[in-house]
């Protein structure tokens, strides 16, 4: 807790949980989320594209080797789950895993560092971890949802899709129940996908903030929580990726 004696604990917490924003009403933009997530994405995907552009079939360099390792890891997961043309699904899964992982990893930077640095240059609010912003997680999950519908219609056609909606899983005689189940399922998909990531990261960030309120006691607590949090960071990125692949695989194959 470094923002001055005048600040109470709840003010400190609220301050940490407020986005740097611009605009009013719906047309509010969380600049910190947009800029940090964009910068991370531009950096890592630029780096990966650069490494890929110089990729050779000979002995790979360190960077190429690392990128290949990540790509192969994701691709093998996709291969296990998804049977078909992977030229879109694998890049999508790579994007999700790498991007979410790095945005989550912003959590490992001590909570006060970037807000203090921002304060020094006149930025009064800064929420460092983009995945603690539901706008980001919902943007991703709704994009995935749109892709699910796109592939459903593309692979099965409108007729096939409607047939599936009304007949799975209980057969044509229970069509209304099937439809109801399908609606619930399709609403649950994007919401659970978005809220799982958001909730995990938000709670993790909250614990970091609470630990930092403990004064000197934060030192023995922050490190174990950060170590533990590495697991959550990786796991959540992996879960988001895997669920996306599973949903898209279902969209391709049907019930």
């Amino acid at each position: 807790m470094a923002s001055g004696a005048a600040q109470t604990s709840s003010e400190y917490i609220t301050h940490h949980l407020t986005n740097l924003h611009a605009g009013h009403g719906f047309w509010t933009f969380h600049l910190d989320t947009l800029i940090i997530s964009g910068a991370i994405g531009l950096f890592i995907f630029g780096l990966m594209a650069w490494a890929a552009s110089k990729a050779s079939s000979g002995v790979p360099g360190k960077l190429q080797n690392f990128v290949e390792m990540v790509v192969t890891l994701v691709d093998s997961q996709v291969k296990d789950t998804f049977h078909g043309d992977r030229s879109f699904i694998t890049p999508l899964a790579i994007t999700i895993f790498v991007w979410v992982f790095l945005m989550n990893a912003m959590d490992l930077i001590p909570v006060d560092w970037l807000p203090l640095a921002g304060g020094a240059v006149g930025i009064h609010h800064l929420k460092v971890v983009p995945t603690t912003d539901p706008n980001l997680t919902f943007a991703m999950s709704l994009t995935v949802f749109a892709l699910i519908y796109f592939f459903n219609l593309k692979v099965k056609g409108v007729g096939g899709f409607l047939h599936e909606v009304f007949t799975a899983p209980f057969g044509p005689w229970l069509a209304p129940v099937n439809l109801l189940f399908r609606i619930v399922e399709d609403i649950a998909k994007p919401i659970s996908l978005a809220l799982r990531l958001f909730g995990n990261m938000y709670a993790g960030e909250m614990v970091f903030i609470l630990i930092s309120l403990l004064g000197l006691w934060q030192l023995p607590l922050a490190l174990p929580w950060a170590l533990f949090h590495i697991l959550i960071i990786t796991l959540q990125a992996f879960v988001f990726m895997m669920l996306t692949v599973v949903y898209l695989s279902m969209a391709h194959e049907g019930h």
Binding site: N19, G23, G25, F26, W27, T28, F29, H30, T33, L34, S37, G38, G41, F45, T95, W99, D133, P134, N135, L136, F138, A139, M140, L142, T143
Partner: peptide, 15 residues
Amino acid sequence: INATLIGQAIWFAFF
């Protein structure tokens, strides 16, 4: 939830 969502969706699609 606000317009940030649209911006993030654009970032996501771009990446």
